[in-house]
Amino acid sequence: MAIYWSLLVVLALLAITAPLALLFGFGAASAARSSIAPLRWFGKTYIALVRGVPDIAFFLFFVIALDQGIEYLRHKALCPAWDQPIRQGNDFVVCQAAKMPLGNAPQWVHETYGFTLAVLTFAIVFGAFAANVLFGAMRAVPRAQLETAEAYGMSPRQTFRRVLVPQMWVYALPGLGNLWMVLIKATPLLFLLGVEDIVYWARELGGTKTPRFTDYPHGDWRMWYFLALLVFYLIFTRISELVLDRVMRRLTLGQATTGGEAQRNAA
């Protein structure tokens, strides 16, 4: 049963992470082309850093770092009377009230908290990739369009909102589609973040079972479980590919790009 539940977990992760990463990416891309220098530096560093380092290192890093960061902030807020250092040698010590989640919280709170951390981590990493795509898309919008908007007396803000953002999506879609495929293929890494996802259950259920512990004894079936996962992902990516193709066809309809031109010629 649990393995079907964990499939839902994977789908939920995708459904929550995709918009969140897009939001992060949009923020970072806007920051990277901001006229305020520190904001620009921040945006560019974020994009460059996340892309230069293996993402799995980030997954392992952020889960602990976020956890400790949250506990540290709660510790500062909730226990001002605490006078011992937080890092004692190899231990990270905060007061009981600052533990996150609280030590006496029920199991589902722990699981949800772990899942939330995972979502946040995915959003941070994939936000950088999305930022890169969106940054490129913003630059791909013809310069003349922006100049026209300025000539009409729009402020930079208005130009951004009314001209740049609506036009950039066509240019961003191929990149974002690619990113979506990559995001699908990154979901098994949830396993490394400590969430009990399909990889975890495939390992658990597939392992050798003796008649003493279960009604359905079998040998080492992990290979077949992973084969099934492989097929599941293949089908999933294939479907996404087909859907993205259709969306792209719809969006390029009547656009002043080579794709749109080709459609006009074909018709």
């Binding site: 293929k185 990889v199 597939g206 290979m223 996962l229 492989l230 293949l234």
Partner: peptide, 22 residues
């Protein structure tokens, strides 16, 4: 190309390992 590009590398590693184990 479709099989190796369409599925996660992580799952491929797992599958490969257990395949070789079998």
């Amino acid at each position: 190309i479709f099989i190796f590009r369409g599925s996660p590398l992580f799952i491929q590693f797992f599958f490969g390992y257990f395949l070789f184990l079998t």
